[in-house]
């Protein structure tokens, strides 16, 4: 029936209009989680290159040194940091710890994540 819950409604998870900070955390964890799963699949494909010999693998690694792929790697690290740190917040609140401070913890998680991402960005792109 129209309006009823349905798995097809999942796209509305990502509609930020009118939603509060908690939903931003919810969305962020889903987007970064999906990104990390996609990366894992790509990582498997890269490892598969090993079976095609050293030469094929070396040429593939050379391609990975392209700045576009380095930015891609930075995005993976950013996703890992955000997913992990926000995950700690969700884990704590899920056990009833500091639930009243979930919003403060989300802000702290955001600040720590931004610092971590900045550190890796300088490290990875600084010499580019």
């Amino acid at each position: 029936m129209k309006g009823s819950p349905s798995p097809r409604n999942f796209l509305q998870w990502f509609d930020p209009r009118g939603r509060s900070a908690g939903s931003w955390g919810f969305m962020l964890n889903r987007i970064t989680g999906l990104g990390l799963v996609l990366y894992l699949a790509m990582h498997m494909i890269v490892l598969f290159q090993l079976t095609r010999g050293a030469e094929a693998y070396d040429s593939f690694i050379q391609l990975m040194k392209n700045p576009i792929f380095i930015i891609g790697e930075l995005l993976v690290i950013a996703a890992g940091i955000m997913h992990g740190i926000n995950g700690i917040r969700i884990g704590l609140t899920s056990f009833g710890i500091a639930v009243r401070y979930q919003l403060t913890m989300l802000i702290i998680a955001g600040i720590i994540s931004a610092g971590g991402i900045l550190f890796f960005a300088i490290h990875m792109l600084g010499g580019a």
């Binding site: 939603r19 509060s20 908690g22 939903s23 955390g25 919810f26 609140t93 639930v99 979930q102």
Partner: peptide
């Protein structure tokens, strides 16, 4: 999944998110 939207929109300060946790 800890979005806490329930607590954000509650017009009566029930704090469903807190109660679920």
């Amino acid at each position: 999944h800890s979005a806490f939207e329930c607590s954000a929109v509650c017009p009566s300060n029930v704090e469903p998110g807190y109660r679920i946790m």
